[in-house]
Design a protein around this nucleic acid. Structure first.
Lengths: 134, 134
DNA sequence: TATGCACCTTGTAGCAGCTACAAGGTCAAG
DNA sequence: CTTGACCTTGTAGCTGCTACAAGGTGCATA
């Protein structure tokens, strides 16, 4: 199948697929006589895997690791487990930070609604609140 | 005050401060005879504002807007309110996505612990699960 | 006065993960 | 034989910094 078809099938832009090839994330495809990339079902499966892992927040280098691991059937499972655990931790960290952030933002909104007229309390808050972030 | 001092005072790298100047986020400072940037307390206040807003997840262009708004005292409050509301919405969206993501990741881990030996269930899941993300 | 050292200057390139061109080649339908 | 959809490579851009390199400044000390 050509790049456009693969793109459609996986919801990936053709440019992104070529980018993955350049980066060694997706193996290079065979070429047709007209020099078009010619993808196999293997490619389709791998690209789906890649997109899924990326969608789960794994970095491209983590995705590469996952792909390598999933190729060697022996001893890989604990390593994969480790990667997933690490990613889960990271996601939890992000969630916590975002919740703090959300609380601050909604407090801002509340303080604004309290002050009908006059100086904007939000701006004040932005300028003065304690530096809780990060 | 020189850039290093401002950097320390705000927890910002000097390079980032110069970047903000280039991008028109922070106004350019006066120069000393030796061509060093010489910052005022106004700059300090503005940079604190910028860092705080960035820490709350506002993009640099949103930060610019906020700064412009906070300069014109009239009619600005509702615009600021709008920006904050928009950002809050964005943050909530991110939180929801991350929670979905977390659930998937922990399900993966559970399926892995279930299968003591043999093929890695995580890899299977990565390859096959429905495309829930995004 | 010389020298060392911390600090500053500009300019440029790099990071991730794409995305968006431009300029041209291929191929099937009409 | 032309049109138009698709493909090719190459390069530059996006966000928000960060990290150099090569050189200038300013102050304390020998």
């Amino acid at each position: 199948m050509r790049i456009g078809e693969l793109a459609k099938a996986t919801g990936t832009k053709a440019e992104t697929i070529r980018y993955y090839e350049r980066e060694g994330i997706l193996p290079a495809a065979d070429r047709t006589t007209g020099n078009y990339r010619d993808y196999s079902n293997e490619h389709l499966a791998t690209l789906s895997f890649v997109r899924r892992a990326r969608g789960l927040g794994f970095s491209t280098s983590q995705v590469k690791e996952l792909l390598t691991l999933s190729d060697n059937d022996d001893k890989s499972c604990s390593d994969v487990d480790q990667l997933v655990r690490q990613q889960l931790k990271e996601v939890n960290r992000k969630i916590e930070n975002l919740i703090l952030l959300r609380d601050e933002l909604s407090q801002m909104l509340q303080s604004c609604e309290a002050s009908r007229i006059g100086d904007c309390q939000i701006v004040e808050r932005l300028a003065q609140s304690p530096q809780v972030w990060r």
